[in-house]
């Protein structure tokens, strides 16, 4: 038994069908995709010392010099979350190896890296309506000139803390803590109502909950 591989579960597996259906319906306007989980560490190191450079050498790419911005790594990204805090991801490494690897580089400079791979999950928001959708629940300035490629921000979407990552004008990533991910997915689906054809102004019933949007209780053996 113990030698059988454990299957990972996507925190938003229950929303996958809904998001796919919505993206199909809104082709050319908006798409909401689940991204595959990646290894991630929260790096804390003094930005004034040699720590950032040492970590950069170890991970094979520069760390972003200014807060609220990101740079590409060979198999992931480095997001600067605060003066002495970065989130480093890697799509290839095992989570525990990635923590060990980054931590080893940071430790010599008084830094630490903590595995947070399963702390967040990532949604990809694409399409001409992407920024408008987010601006219905995010207060920061999302104008392309203010939030261009290379920027990221920790902010609120609806009432949940999210980490927004700007790729292109019509391409953004949204990282959210897994316990809030269901709420955020439901929030996005609701906000996308604005872009769905067939909705008329004025007084209308709320759209009924759709299958898959929320797990429905069923009677039966677990």
């Amino acid at each position: 038994m113990a030698d059988r591989t454990l299957a990972p579960a996507h925190p938003l597996a229950s929303r996958r069908t809904t998001l796919t259906a919505l993206s199909d319906e809104l082709t050319g306007v908006l798409s909401l995709e689940l991204e595959n989980p990646v290894a991630a560490v929260d790096l804390r190191v003094d930005p004034r010392g040699d720590g950032p450079a040492a970590v950069a050498a170890a991970v094979g790419g520069p760390l972003p010099a200014r807060p609220d911005s990101w740079t590409a790594l060979p198999a992931g990204v480095a997001l600067r979350l605060g003066p002495d805090e970065w989130l480093l991801t890697d799509a290839v490494a095992r989570a525990e190896d990635w923590e060990f690897h980054v931590d080893e580089a940071a430790a010599a400079h008084g830094g630490t890296a903590v595995d947070v791979s399963a702390q967040r999950t990532t949604l990809r928001v694409r399409g001409p309506a992407a920024r408008e959708l987010l601006s219905s629940g995010c207060a920061i300035d999302l104008r392309p000139a203010s939030f261009p490629h290379g920027r990221c921000a920790q902010t609120l979407l609806g009432q949940a803390a999210v980490l927004l990552v700007a790729h292109e004008i019509d391409d953004l990533q949204l990282l959210v803590r897994t316990s809030f991910a269901g709420y955020v997915a439901d929030w996005l689906v609701d906000a996308a109502t604005e872009f769905r054809p067939g909705f008329r102004p004025g007084f209308r019933p709320e759209p009924q909950p759709q299958p898959g949007l929320r797990p429905q209780p069923s009677r039966g053996t677990p």
């Binding site: 316990s179 269901g182 209780p217």
Partner: peptide, 15 residues
């Protein structure tokens, strides 16, 4: 926001 654990779907299915 409704926060759920990774086992939420199991709990739901288990009534």
């Amino acid at each position: 926001p409704v926060r759920t654990t990774p086992l939420h779907a199991w709990h739901v299915a288990a009534d």
